[in-house]
């Protein structure tokens, strides 16, 4: 049992929904980014997957938007401790994007416009677990939330859901990305509270 902070009572317990450990509920949609928000024009936007053999699969905005898209409702968990439940998105499943990609790679290194990177096992992008999202709450995804399109991997902490996503590099080794190099966890499962390296 932890030490007690005298006089602290906290929120009424009955209001607490089922959240990962150490998270609190918010109805806002906070913005966490390491730098200025990049503005990516749609006429130069492309999403590119590069395999470990150097094979490139690329979609410009028009080709990307012609792919079948899905509406989804997911919970978001940010490592800065807020959780937002039941958020509505529209996006293209990574299953669709990876369908014709031949690879034996086990990891994906995610790259974004503006230079942000993150990393995750390829299997976490498959089987209906990840999308390239382009609408939030029925509107075009705003730049500060990652528009025109961001990765959405809701079962991991939100820093894995790279904003302004530009592509994936499929690799045999797990290569730490931006926050992973700055002390955050290599995998980032909110239910196991994997916030920082070594958690």
């Amino acid at each position: 049992m932890a030490l007690i902070s005298r006089g602290f009572s906290g929120r009424p317990r009955s209001d607490e929904p089922d959240l990962p450990p150490g998270q609190y509920l918010t109805s806002d949609f906070p913005v966490l980014s390491a730098g200025p928000t990049p503005r990516v024009p749609l006429d130069t936007w492309a999403f590119t997957i590069v395999t470990e053999a150097g094979e490139r699969h690329s979609w410009d905005w028009k080709a990307f938007r012609q792919l079948p898209a899905e509406d989804l409702t997911v919970d978001l968990h940010c490592v800065t401790r807020w959780s937002k439940l039941g958020t509505s998105w529209r996006g293209v499943s990574l299953d669709t994007l990876l369908e014709d990609v031949e690879t034996a790679a086990e990891y994906a290194h995610v790259r974004s416009y503006g230079g942000y990177t993150t990393n995750l096992p390829l299997e976490d992008l498959l089987d209906g677990q990840a999308w390239i999202a382009f609408e939030y709450d029925g509107e075009d995804l705003a730049p500060e939330h990652g528009g025109p399109a961001r990765l959405l991997v809701p079962h991991l902490y939100l820093w894995k859901s790279a904003k302004w996503v530009q592509g994936l590099i499929l690799t045999p080794e797990d290569e730490p990305g931006f926050w992973e190099t700055a002390g955050y966890h290599i995998y980032g499962d909110p239910w196991r509270e994997q916030r920082y390296a070594g958690d």
Binding site: V31, S33, G35
Partner: peptide, 17 residues
């Protein structure tokens, strides 16, 4: 240069939702 500008944000977006 955007890479020289380090940011820390807090609070809601101030927009909808």
């Amino acid at each position: 240069s955007a890479t020289d500008v380090r940011t820390e944000r807090f609070g809601p977006t101030g927009s909808t939702s």
